[in-house]
Amino acid sequence: MAERYEIRFSGAGGQGLITAGIILAEAASIVEGKSAVQSQSYGPEARGGASKSEVIISDGPIDYPKATIVDACLAMTQVACDKYANGIKPGGLLLLDEDFVPNVPEGDFKVVRVPIMRTAQEEIGRAIVANVVALGAMIALTGVVAKESGLKAVLSRVPEAFKDLNEKAYNMGFEKVKAAMA
């Protein structure tokens, strides 16, 4: 893994992308023992408007705790994409919700489009797990942590009654990206 790997999750406030960032940071640090720092947009715009959560993962100590130039970025909405899908490393990765981001930005990065919200709403039946679909998708895309580590971190945060639901969401997000990239 690179010395420093930066991931940004962005979408609408309330979609759970801060939680997705926290779970990824837990997968990297608590489960895999790497260094991780998670931070987020913080302010009155965080609810309803565009919201972001950033995670930096490294094998060594992490100095600057904010993103410099991200290796991978997720945008769940067009507003978030317009605001936050920038500063992507040349050759980096941009993951988009294909139904909610019609205008795909151009740049020196690979774009992967999957129906994240639709997967949560229609295939799983619960829009609330869209963030876990997104997390599975991002881990499949980047390989920044092992698939099992991400799942372990997800399951350690959810009550027993919702473990199956979240496991399904995580796996579906993971597989959608694998299929899109195949």
């Binding site: 926290i22 940071a25 640090s29 608590i30 991780a36 720092v37 998670q38 931070s39 913080y42």
Partner: peptide, 10 residues
Amino acid sequence: DEICAHMREP
């Protein structure tokens, strides 16, 4: 400061 206070680390 707000940065150290709100970032998350292990």
